[in-house]
């Protein structure tokens, strides 16, 4: 059985683990993580990711720049991408969607919310 690879980009360790724990409940999924935008740039070419979940507020390059990079890059542009934001930063969320993010999730979120979207996009 080949696993479906998902990349989670999030600089907060605790939040990252919460996300991982939620998504990994789907058996077929293998979660990879990146702790920053730069890190994501390094990890992306290593595997064929079927889904990217990214935070916006990150230290070196912010999430929007990552989204733009992904969506303009011929290798990744068709990969579904969810953006995670917090309440109150609607402007960033809108830009994310404009740049091509497929869905957005607002923190704090329930695991079921993310799981539903994951299943939907990965058709699981």
């Amino acid at each position: 059985m080949s696993t479906r690879k998902v990349l989670i980009v999030e600089d907060s360790g605790a939040t990252r683990e919460l996300l991982r724990a939620a998504v990994e409940t789907i058996v077929e999924i293998e979660v990879h993580t990146a702790i920053s935008g730069f890190d994501a740039l390094k990890v992306l070419p290593r595997h064929r990711f079927e889904l990217i979940i990214t935070d916006i507020n990150m230290p070196d390059i912010n999430g929007l720049e990552l989204i733009n990079f992904v969506k303009k890059n011929p290798h990744y542009k068709d990969t579904p991408l969810f953006v995670v934001t917090t309440e109150g930063r609607e402007a960033d969320r809108d830009r994310g969607l404009l740049l091509g993010a497929n869905e957005y999730v607002i923190k704090p979120f329930q695991p079921e919310t993310i799981l539903g979207l994951v299943r939907q996009y990965l058709k699981l």
């Binding site: 600089d11 907060s12 605790a14 939040t15 919460l18 935070d55 507020n57 230290p59 917090t86 930063r89 923190k107 704090p108 979120f109």
Partner: peptide, 19 residues
């Protein structure tokens, strides 16, 4: 950014006062 991170992080753990 620090305040923003703290807000997000604490909300994920249900600590509304801090968030």
């Amino acid at each position: 950014r620090a305040a923003h991170s703290l807000k997000g992080l604490s909300s994920m753990f249900g600590l509304d006062g801090i968030s």
